[in-house]
Design a protein around this nucleic acid. Structure first.
Lengths: 347, 347
DNA sequence: CTGTTAGCGCCTTCAA
DNA sequence: TTGAAGGCGCTAACAG
């Protein structure tokens, strides 16, 4: 149709068709009041006819702000992170930002590259769920843009973060099991190098302390990374002569692995765990789950970041830490069909 | 530290520090062979010292290619779409592209705006899971960049798409139920305006035809949009005097709603459905699920798109249609504990 | 109300 | 082996 270079029509092309300068086209598209109605209409007509779209890349080069914020998560396939991403996007959109997402696929060593890539693409800020325990690359990133951490706290970094009540939630759920008289509780956890793993173990331990019960170290398994390793660990525990009477799992994937082991073994043990998941309420197992709003982690992180973007370099607020509350949800019945004690909270 | 404008140091700043021109910095960063080793080292040192990062926005303005492809999905919280997104990202990364993700949050009327926004940000191509049945905005988008559809076919558009075997999968799963002697099968489906809904109903119907069984229209429910509506529809069906003896569900959320209804009602019916989901194998229900690789849909879509990006305008291949195979997975046992017949496929 | 000039950060082309 | 000029598409700042 129209003679155009590889990139489609430009303002210049539109202007030529509407018989005005590119500058006037720019004004019209920006809703600048100082343009006559007649001109405005001609410009819009030309835009329509050419299918013209303003080049945001050139625009942001000129204006010095890309309107994009970056999000780095470890595993988008985990509903936890996809909810978090949706929360970020919700708030980002609300404030006129676009979210660019990167997934490190559980490989901590890929994270620095992803972060750099986002910075190269001129994101104005970053929200990161740190994959590993090293965070130097984030310190480097902070030289360029503000960084907000989600789900894990900064380590040697001075920046905002959004956490869940890892310690409190784990303690409360464990206390439920203890209150029912279960004293031999196995702990199935992710690597203790992860903040969440360590905190949740701490909560598990604190509940025991408060109940005056000594946890059996022989029933503690850490370093589980997915449902499969959790299933294997559970099967091994169930086969022991001193098998546990209840289970505590530190996240949704570990709970699911443990549940698979229980159901395959046809054993019904009370299970407590972090993260609620689909169909947990109808499994017919006595479950005590620490539930929280993953979307809200994303929303809060985005709010913190965007707030920071609104302040000049000089008047940045001190780093903040926001905590998302957890609540305990109880499902299912005991093996003998007797309902569990009165739920503390329910859906 | 260094005097810098809002956007951080530029090649010019690096050059000044390394006592070369910006042009030479550009050459070094591009691995251009025509630079002396001494200069190269001075430049790298300056880059390090300033924490310099090349501005990809300016670069792509000059080079005329952003290196980004856009993906539009309807609901990232559905594992189906998050897997699809991971598949897209995997292939995109492999070919040096970056994926920019937009989520329409189930609101079809937001899709055009998202598509336009991605085009404004200079994505070089788009992969779209169309939210509604109208696709004119995609025709407009195709004036700018290639568009590949995922999970739903083009309607009045000439472009590539990646589909699953909706018809075949539904027919096969339904045939399993019929082969076991269930003739009163309820159909719980999403709106028939969606391609997948219509195709899966067609497969359901075809299996009945082939088995010489007449489906009961009174047991067909369409227009279900989520687990809650599916649960309600299932409860209603179970309460009828002529209640069904088996259920067919057209997607994971509908299956989950139906399962919740069954388990709450303490009724065990054989259930067939599209999409596998977490823990389906340990629910203890007789399930016949149509499983497929959602990642692969994303990977194929990305391959088709990137292939097209590699061809000049003149030599574009004709539009292609790729189909992702399905397989039937059977789980669980009959209500009386008797195992189901020999599985046709298994995990 | 509208146009001209200049430059955002980078890279292609040409010259030294 | 290196640098200078010019321009990708857009828009502030200043004319007119």
């Amino acid at each position: 149709m129209t003679a155009r270079r590889a990139g489609g029509p430009t303002m210049h092309d539109v202007g030529k068709l509407a018989q005005v300068s590119a500058m006037t086209v720019s004004r019209v598209l920006k809703n600048d009041p100082g343009v006559s109605e007649a001109t405005r209409e001609r410009v819009f007509a030309a835009v329509d006819r050419l299918g013209y779209r303003r080049n945001e890349t050139a625009r942001s080069l000129r204006l010095g702000g890309s309107g994009m914020i970056g999000l780095v998560v470890t595993n988008l396939a985990n509903p936890f992170y996809s909810r978090l991403a949706l929360g970020v996007q919700e708030v980002a959109t609300e404030y006129g930002f676009r979210m660019v997402l990167s997934n490190s696929a559980e490989q901590a060593d890929r994270e620095p590259g992803l972060v750099d890539g986002l910075i190269d693409h001129q994101v104005e800020g970053l929200i990161v769920v740190p994959a590993g325990s090293r965070q130097q690359h984030l310190a480097a990133a902070m030289r360029h843009v503000p960084v907000v951490l989600a789900a894990r706290p900064p380590a040697g970094l001075d920046t905002d973060c959004v956490l869940v009540e890892d310690f409190h939630g784990a303690r409360e759920a464990t206390a439920c099991l203890l209150a029912e008289g279960h004293t031999r509780i196995a702990f199935l956890g992710n690597p203790p190098s992860l903040y969440t793993g360590a905190e949740r173990l701490r909560g598990f331990w604190a509940a025991h302390d408060e109940a005056g019960v000594e946890p059996d170290n022989a029933l503690i398994r850490q370093g589980l990374v997915d449902a499969a390793t959790a299933e294997a660990a559970t099967l091994e525990l169930l086969g022991r002569p001193d098998a546990p009477a209840a289970l505590f799992c530190t996240n949704n994937r570990i709970s699911q692995g443990a549940i698979r082991a229980l159901l395959k073994s046809d054993v019904t043990l009370p299970l407590a765990g972090f993260d609620d998941f689909d169909l947990s309420d109808v499994l017919g197992l006595p479950l005590t789950l620490v539930s929280y709003d993953a979307d809200e982690i994303g929303r809060e992180a985005a709010r913190l970041l965007i707030d920071r973007l609104g302040h000049k370099e000089a008047e940045q607020p001190p780093s903040r830490r926001v905590t998302i509350p957890t609540r305990v949800v109880r499902h299912g019945v005991h093996a003998d069909g007797r309902p569990l004690g009165p739920p503390r909270t329910d859906t």
